[in-house]
Simulated scan of single mutants.
Amino acid sequence: MKDWLWFSVAFWHTFRGTGGDPFGAPTKSWPWEDGTNSLAMAKRRMKAHFEFMEKLGVDRWCFHDRDIAPDGKTLVETNANLDEIVELAKELQVGTDIKPLWGTAQLFMHPRYMHGAATSPEVKVYAYAAAQVKKALEVTHYLGGENYVFWGGREGYQTLLNTDMKRELEHLANFLQAAVDHKKKIGFQGTLLIEPKPQEPTKHQYDWDVATSFSFLQKYGLTGEFKINVECNHATLSGHSCHHELETARINGLLGNIDANTGDPQVGWDTDEFLTDISEATLVMSSVVKNGGLAPGGFNFDAKLRRESTDVEDMFIAHISGMDTMARGLRNVAKLIEDGSLDELVRKRYQSFDSEIGAMIEAGKGDFETLEKKVLEWGEPIVPSGKQELAEMLFQSAL
């Protein structure tokens, strides 16, 4: 199972999550916190993080630059803070198998990014974002990280009335190309990932879902340089199932990583809950198996404790539950494959295309004149049952 399930702890939710929401104050006060965002506090937090990972038995983690190290008064001071924390993380990695699954730059929380980062209309902000990504790429590489993620966040538009969308998309494409160039310059061998991020908090976006992100990458010649990090909760917010988004990424050769979480179907926001639905986990793992795995990507628990879960023990319970759910999903996929009934049902549904004329169509040689002659020869087609209920029964029987 360990070959298939590369689990990762999300530093920001697990160690920076407060339990606060738009309508309620923070509820969590962890024993290692002192209420400050100081460098000393960042070091204590990083040590707690490594202790948690070692006890949990997980050897991958994901981070934003500003979540692990505090901002300084200048970029030089900020980078120095980050370097100090990264050196500590490097030391803590010694003698373990722990390293980042991926790193990223936090380009949304600071007021300078209120209009976006690479899509900001202010050139100084664009440049600042570039400097921040440069540094984040370098520290991810230094720590042995296997991937680097570009989060959409506020890279979109609340309104198009005051926005030159074409110009901003071109700016963004140039930004991503510069990131590709810097990746190669420093010798970073990891995968660059884009994460579709709908409604956070924008609506006109280049990264609304996998298909939109793929279209953006194609248009600007970036498809060979990026893969997709699919977050299940974001799939829900874009109007899709997680399975739909994973399959769209997989069949286009773009599936690189999964943020293993889920959302509340009655809440129109990114609630980032741990995935505990066995049915959904089985569908997720079916895509992963068909993809031949995710390496060098994995499963990042981009999920947070519920607001009323305030014990340190709850951190362990949540992650263990998430890991067990994905493991059961993988076992279920193995059952389905070994049984073969569902695969055979799918094969039979398309068996008419195994004919000579079907093979011609699938080879792209089915011209309309030839097909019209066949229709006149065959007459009205008899359409067989799709056996939808049987498919559902076969799937549910493996759960």
Rank of each mutant, 00 (worst) to 15 (best):
D3T: 09
W4P: 01
F11C: 04
G17D: 04
T18A: 02
D21W: 14
P22I: 09
A25W: 14
W32K: 02
A40F: 01
A42P: 03
R45P: 00
M53K: 01
L56K: 07
D59G: 02
W61S: 03
V76L: 13
A80P: 05
N81G: 04
L82Y: 04
E84A: 15
V86F: 08
E91C: 07
K99I: 00
G103S: 08
L107Y: 10
F108G: 10
Y113D: 03
A129V: 06
K134F: 14
K134E: 13
L137M: 15
E138H: 12
G144E: 10
N147M: 09
E155P: 02
T159Y: 12
N162P: 00
D164E: 11
H171C: 13
F175M: 05
P196T: 07
P198N: 08
H204R: 03
Y206C: 02
F214P: 01
L222G: 07
T223W: 11
G224Y: 11
F226K: 02
I228G: 08
I228N: 10
A235Q: 03
A235M: 05
L237P: 02
A249V: 01
L254G: 11
G256C: 06
N257I: 09
N257A: 05
D259A: 09
W269K: 08
T271M: 07
E273N: 14
M285A: 05
L294N: 03
L294T: 04
A295I: 08
F299T: 11
D311G: 02
D314K: 10
S321P: 00
M323G: 10
A327E: 13
L330F: 12
R331L: 11
N332A: 11
D339A: 12
G340I: 03
L345C: 07
F353R: 04
E356S: 13
E362T: 08
G366E: 13
E369G: 02
W378T: 06
P381G: 10
I382E: 06
P384D: 06
S385T: 15
K387P: 00
Q388Y: 15
M393E: 15
L394S: 12
A398I: 05
A398R: 07
